[in-house]
Each structure stands twice: as C-alpha cells, then as structure tokens.
Design a protein around this nucleic acid. Structure first.
Lengths: 229, 229
DNA sequence: CGGAAACTTGAACTGCTTCAAGGTTTGTGG
DNA sequence: CCACAAACCTTGAAGCAGTTCAAGTTTCCG
C-alpha cells in the first residue's frame, strides 16, 4: 500500500524539483507558483501510483528513485512505455486534455515524487507564458524520445539497443569508460523492450566488444568498438 | 525530383488546412496570420520532402495524400515512425527546439502539403496564446499516439495489430462493416511495424474471424469477433 | 488490353520469448 | 561482520513470431 503521507518540500527535494527539465526554464514568478502547487509523496517499491483508465488528478515529477510507466494486455503481460528518474515528469500529456491516465505507474524502488493538480497547472499555463512554454518543451522532448524508441524497437537488435544505451550514458571523452546502472537490470530490459533473459544474453554477446558486467557496474574497454555494433 | 512550385492556397486546400487538428481551434486573428505564413507545395510519389539531419526550415501539414516519416539504420533498412494523411502536421516538435529534422519524410503518393517557416511560427506562438495552445494540443496528441505505438509493438502480435487498426477505422455502430484502406497495404504494414508479407499473413489469419480482403476493400462480417482477437 | 507494380504464398532462417534450473548479488538480523 | 534468505540474474533448451528471399498471382493504371 502506498505511503500516502503528504509532506512539505525539504531542501533537497526542492533543489531537484527546481532543476527538473520542466521547472528549470521558468521565471521566478511561475517557479514560486508551481512550488506552491507541489505536494510531496513517498511510495515504497512496487507501489502503484496510478492505473491506466483511472480519473487523473495529478501530474508528477520524480524527486528520488525510478518509476515505471507501463501498459497491460488482456493476458496481463506488461510492456514498459517509459522509465522516469529524478527530475523527470510524467502524465504531463494530460495537461492538454484527457481526464484519465493513459498507463500504469509503479514505483520500481522507494520513491519520492512531487505532484501537481492538473487543473491548477492548466490554469497557470493559461496565465503564465513561460509555463505554457515549459509544457511545450517537455511534451516535445518526450515525443522525440518516444519516436526514438519506436525507431530503435523496429531497427535494432538486442545487442545494438544495449550498446546504444551504454553509449548514451557514458562520458563522451576517452576511449574506455565505466558506468553504474542507476536501476536493476530487469528495469533496463523493460526500458529497451526486452525480456530480462534477452538483456542478459545481449550483455554476454557484447563481451567480445569489450563490455564487462559485474552487478550494476559495467566496464567498456573500447568505446569506438561499441559504436560499430 | 520534387515538384517545388510554390502555389497559392486554393479553396479546397484552404478548407482542409483550416479544419486540420492544428488550426481548427485557433481564433480568427491567429488563423489569418497562420494562413499568411502558409505556402503550398506539390510532391510526386516517392519524392523526399526532407531527410534526417538536414537543417530544418519548415513544419508541414498534409493537404492531400500520405507522407511517410521514417528512419534508416546503418544497413539502409527503413522503419516507419508515423504515416501522415490530410490534416496531419509533422516536424512540429521542432517548434520547441532543434534545428535539424529528426527523420526522413517521403511522399507515399502524389501529395500536396502546406508548410510554415518554423521561425515565424515560433514567433507567432510567443505572441498568440491560442497558437501556443494549438502546439500543446498537437504535441500531446502525437505523444499519445507514439506511446500507443510503443505499447502495441511490444504487446501485440501481427493479427492483433491489424484487428486493432480495423476496429479503430471502422464505423462504431452495427455488427459488420466495410472499410476502404486509404493507402497501399505496404504502407499499412510499415505503419504497424511489419514487413508486407507479415501483413498479408495477418490478413489471412483473420479470415477465420470474418475478415475478407479484396484489394483495398476490407469486409468485416463480425465486429465483436474481431474484438476478441 | 498489356505491362508494371503490388500483393500473396511457401520455405528457410533469425532473434526473441518462455520455461526451468542453477548461480550471484543484496540486504537484513544476529 | 558474517550468515542466510530472498530477490535477482544467468544460462540452457525448446518454441514461436516475424523476416527474408524467391516465385507466382493479382491488381492497378495507362
């Protein structure tokens, strides 16, 4: 069951929120008004934040931890649509229209989120130009990444998707790198549209390209070799 | 080669443009100013409107015919991201930011499009609230359909995707229906993330559910049976 | 009516899923 | 700090959905 205590923003949460892609571009007035609207909520691992089809009251911003957005088919199989980490907003496409959530949201671990009443943010976006602009920026970024996801699903094999993920999350400079995954491998698998077993096999097929996996730590000995995959 | 003659809007084109999802909600002032910005261009089947990575000057609205948006992988394999018909806008996510096209656009048949200089529409969206709102509506709708696409790709088999498409494009009332596809089957295949052969096999597996195909005409004898697929 | 393009069908193959079993990591309590 | 259990991950084997290639058929359009 969700830990539904609503808390005041502490300094750390506030900083993450102010630096989120949604809020960072706001002017001081809009920023203060958005902060006024925010309430903080904790969820434990596996808690459901909301379900597809439920009447939607809030849009969200993760402050700590990862949230899975996913759909179910009739047999109960799940498909992840997006994984949201600290600073990511979700359910924001309901700001334009729509009164029901479009997917399920589940805490992948212990999570702290800020939420905002959709109705109040809609009003604020009417009044303050920079809020409307932030909504546009945010929808646009998500649309881009969704289109990337469609293209990647349709064009790339499992090892290619993993290589792509590693290169995207890897310091640009240098010929080798080390990454610590910010979440469980099963979450990464879902994000890439794979079963956990397929992710595991993809990692082992990348060994020949110099990728070594130990728990959440991934060593890449040759970045340019990985780009050839 | 593209037929790059720029023409004035005729009455028919103007009507389609005014009823497009982007323009329909605009007030009279914004509508007139958008019309001022529009130029009309024809393309022949297979012409490339723009390529991924090119410097982006315009965003587009189809007035007649269908346009494929797609990406290429290194081997030259293509994956469709979206199919745009009359009244659909594309490349609009560049309004928020970005100076290069994110995908290739190709005319699937003879096509008439309106295009708008991104820079001028950006300015207009700054000035006119209803234009900003139309951008939000438009991005939001595309984000929804992209998320649907991701979920469907990951959850549904080929026959299920086809059944889903038919039900979405089918009059709601009655127990049977007849549909005329608005484009070639190979385009539908791409839209659904399938090879043409897989679409063909999906149709033949739907025969037992009362789906009959003759050219572009598709008869559905039992809509509720199709919903069970 | 004729030719080109589009579609269908078959057969082989590839890549991912599923299921099952064994191994590793993680976190907790003593 | 260690031990232990639970959760997570890996590996193998089998199966299936969709792709690819090739050949034959239908549809479209001048």
């Amino acid at each position: 069951m969700p830990v539904n205590k609503t808390l005041k923003l502490n300094t750390r949460d506030k900083n993450i929120l102010l630096r989120s892609s949604f809020m960072e571009s706001l002017g001081p007035v809009s920023m203060a008004r958005m902060l006024d609207l925010a309430t903080v909520t904790n969820f434990e691992a596996r808690d459901i934040l909301f379900r597809e089809g439920e009447v939607a009251e809030y849009f969200y911003c993760s402050l700590t931890g990862y949230v899975r957005l996913y759909r179910l088919n009739r047999d109960g199989r799940e498909a992840d649509i997006r994984i949201c980490g600290p600073g990511d907003t979700f359910a924001e496409c309901l700001l334009a229209c729509g009164d029901r959530y479009l997917y399920n949201a589940q805490a992948a671990e212990n999570v702290v989120v800020a939420r905002f009443e959709l109705q109040k943010v809609r009003q604020l976006a009417e009044q303050e130009k920079d809020v409307a602009k932030a909504v546009i920026q945010c929808l646009s970024a998500h649309l881009r990444s969704s289109m990337d996801c469609i293209a990647n699903d349709r064009l790339q094999t499992a090892p290619q998707r993993v290589a792509h993920y590693l290169l995207d999350n890897c310091p640009q400079d240098g010929s080798s790198a080390s990454i610590r995954l910010p979440f469980q491998k099963s979450l990464l698998a879902g994000k890439l549209g794979l079963a956990p077993e397929a992710l595991s096999r993809a990692f082992s097929s990348l060994r020949r390209a110099g990728v070594t996996v130990r728990g959440r730590i991934i060593q890449i000995s040759d970045i340019s070799a990985l780009k050839q995959i």
